[in-house]
Amino acid sequence: MKKHTESLLVYALLVVGAMVMLLPYAWMVSTSLKAQSEVFSYPPQWIPSTPMWQNYVEAWKAAPFPRYFVNSLFVAGLVTLGDLTTGSLAAFAFGRMRFPGRDALFTLYLASLMIPHQMTIIPSFLLLRNLSDIDPALGLDTYFALAAPFMASAFGVFMLRQSFMRIPNELEDAATLDGCGRLGFLTRVVLPLAQPSLAALALFAFQGNWNSYLWPLIVTNSDEMRTVQIGLRYFVGQEGGSQWGLLMAAAVFVSLPMIALYLFVQKTFTQGIANTGFK
């Protein structure tokens, strides 16, 4: 009997907690469907009298959101691909090769984890500003500027190195006997075996870059290059904090891709975080 009341209490607490956590989302969706006249009614009504689906169309057209989405997708995709490629190569070198200087270099990579990204932004900005004198495509306000700094991460190297090191040496000996070089062994044996780690890293890289803000804020300057996050911020500035129906509609479509992705791959996400502590 006591057991029963206890689990009821646990469920009650969890349901209330979950509702509090999701309340801002409900409020966002509710406002996104309200007519401008209803937005400012107080105390607030949760259910709009007639749902204004039109808000979504208007918000989508009020700023170049299609372009922002293409930019974000392209940059996040590029960063993910780059992170996986450079990370796999470095993880293989650190985890499965022996050469003079390896441990010193490994310490150098380890040290980069102590460097906050925010402290690198001024020199990186100035570097890109100088690069644009050589070739405008490598300068500020380009895809290169948005993606290049994040195409390698020490975190990714460590994460992959852990899983590469678990692969038994016998497999490498067999592959070598079969005439497989190191790159062949990496691509044909190691990468397929390390798929769960690669998937987790891909997810983190994509999500992190999709949501990144400070760097794209600094290096973009034109609507052609703005990412979704920066685009949303400009949309807020442009609407001056009055068209809340449109703003909430925009917030819905900006946050939806990550929420959907999370719901599809919940397990990879939570296990990846539990294993690595990555955020």
Binding site: G17, M21, P24, V228, Q229, M248, V254, Y262, T270
Partner: peptide, 22 residues
Amino acid sequence: FRAAFFIPTITSLVAVSVVWQW
């Protein structure tokens, strides 16, 4: 339940900030 508690963490901070501003 886990999703309910976790979704705010992965939602874009810009979107979340706009919602909380409201």
